[in-house]
Design a binder for these strands. Structure first.
Lengths: 154, 154
DNA sequence: TATTGTTATACTCTATAACTATA
DNA sequence: TATAGTTATAGAGTATAACAATA
């Protein structure tokens, strides 16, 4: 660690004028999302699961038998990115590639038994972590937010 | 282009169960933010300005004379990332590094005259692009969203 | 001809550590 | 001792293009 953790110098950060950035949803979305990702990492990095891998785990858990390409499309990624993700989850013995009976080009993805218990535990942890942030929200704002964000993403 | 743009095969995407992902602010924030970034790029990539460079431009415009480190802290980045960003904006003749009179280790950052007019034009474009998305929102939701996202990011 | 999984590749973003010159 | 700018570097994340096997 090169940097000092308790600097004696003022950063002047509290006096900075953010101009139009304070009125832009794109900027505010980015800042909020970065906070959520770093909180996710703090809560889950010891398990070796990134937010992206967590998404794959949940989609396969809820939709057993999906192909890699279908999972990629559900998450909005390119199928080439799925190879390393499934490789890693398979090395962790959480997921299994079974040859598809209908189409010999593709695999059907399933959680292993330990993948099932692992993902249950992870989901609990992620929900706990999110609930810790709900104190920043008023009654009903979480549901409202989920609805608005879904509309903005479509 | 290897891929066909009008596939005849169903993706089954509309039938996928997203499970807990549909209830997680972190996931929804990421999806919404990715949409905003791709819309930003579609609207502004011809000008050679990414969302990150736009942030630097706005902070320097509103706070002339700041050091690179102060800008980095305002935007939540590491100061090492600021070098390439300021280099690029300087090559585009939008920003200027002036030696600080108080501290010979640091530079004071300013917009050039063309940087001023350029950033005005960019800000208009970014606002126009955002306003195109407000049709997805109901009355008052934008202001409420800015407030909630600010609370979540702190 | 088109699609699946794969590989190679590249580009961006981000963060860390170490260096120099200054403070 | 600490800080500002810099460099080198490395790790994610993401995307494109091409290939073999299969449809």
């Amino acid at each position: 660690m090169e940097e000092s953790l308790n600097s004696k110098y003022s950063t002047d950060e509290e006096q900075i004028d953010f101009g139009v950035l304070d009125q832009l949803l794109g900027y505010k979305l980015r800042r909020a999302q970065l906070k959520f990702f770093s909180r996710f990492s703090a809560a889950c990095s010891d398990l070796g699961i990134s937010p992206g891998l967590f998404g794959v785990l949940v989609i396969v858990k809820e939709n057993p038998g999906l192909t890699q390409t279908a999972v990629a499309q559900a998450l909005g990624n390119d199928r080439s990115a799925m190879v390393a993700a499934v490789d890693k989850l398979e090395q962790m013995s959480l997921i299994e590639r079974r040859p598809s009976k209908k189409d010999r080009r593709s695999y059907a993805l399933f959680l292993t038994p330990s993948g099932e218990t692992f993902s249950e535990r992870m989901i609990e942890r992620v929900i706990d972590q999110e609930e810790g942030q709900y104190q920043r929200l008023k009654d009903g704002e979480k549901e409202w937010l989920l609805d608005v964000l879904t509309r903005l993403a479509n």
